[in-house]
Design a protein around this nucleic acid. Structure first.
Length: 225
DNA sequence: GCATTAACCACAG
DNA sequence: CTGTGGTTAATGC
């Protein structure tokens, strides 16, 4: 049991900086759990007591807004989730739900904290990941406010293709409604824009199967908003 | 004014 | 749950 982290092939870049002793300690202080699609991994407003590491799988981060549910981000393992809310707040500021079969490591907060304090390289890798996420989040926020619907949806399709699946063809792991919650559109607008893009031969849509046919045009739509 | 955009509503499959 | 059509309000030219 104590060696599970030592031999883990899905280590984060931060965990890669841990010494063997620390990895053993991590192994003794984390708990690996499997989740099925739609299982709740972390719930908004609940007390956070662990750092969560997605070893494998897809997860959506979401929060209740004043009006409706908002999908904040789609995360692919291996990646930490919830460091900001575990470190910066008493309770979870958002929920996390599996959108594919997912393996999560729950790491005891104090052990994580100890690594940050005692291992500078580990800490730097964590800061690096948090920084990248914050920059991406700023960019997403600006785009959501300023782009028109087609641009936001094109951007999201490109995000799935380039950052999640690394393919031109993929299965959208969200319903139309959820896709709307992610892109700040209504489900009707999502439907219409997907058909438009399909009619214009920019993407192919069959239920949740999406194929990018003309990436250049999709990028233009994303950029121009 | 007129056109465009997107939300809201309704209804069908 | 999804696609489509009509209506409406806001915004831009």
């Amino acid at each position: 049991m104590r060696d599970i982290c030592y031999y883990c092939k899905k280590k984060s870049s931060a965990t890669g900086k841990l010494k063997q002793k620390e990895l053993e300690k991590l192994g003794n202080n984390c708990n690996q759990v499997s989740f099925q699609k739609n299982d709740k991994i972390m719930t908004q407003d609940m007390m956070s007591k662990s750092i969560l590491f997605i070893k494998e799988g897809l997860v959506k981060l979401h929060a209740r807004g004043p009006e409706k549910e908002q999908i904040l981000d789609i995360i692919k393992g291996p990646s930490y989730i919830g460091i900001p809310t575990s470190v910066g707040a008493k309770t979870n500021q958002y929920s996390a739900t599996a959108i594919s079969e997912t393996t999560v490591c729950f790491i005891i907060f104090d052990v994580f904290k100890e690594f940050v304090i005692e291992n500078g390289e580990f800490a730097y890798e964590i800061i690096s990941e948090l920084s990248k996420n914050q920059l991406r989040s700023y960019r997403k926020c600006t785009n959501q406010v300023q782009k028109h619907s087609a641009g936001k949806i094109a951007e999201a399709i490109l995000y799935f293709s380039e950052n999640i699946f690394n393919k031109e063809k993929f299965i959208l792991p969200l319903s139309r409604n959820e896709f709307g919650d992610l892109t700040c559109c209504t489900r009707e607008t999502v439907s219409r824009i997907l058909s438009d893009l399909s009619n214009n031969k920019i993407i192919k849509v069959n239920k949740n199967n999406i194929t990018i046919l003309d990436k250049k045009k999709l990028e233009v739509i994303s950029r121009m908003g």
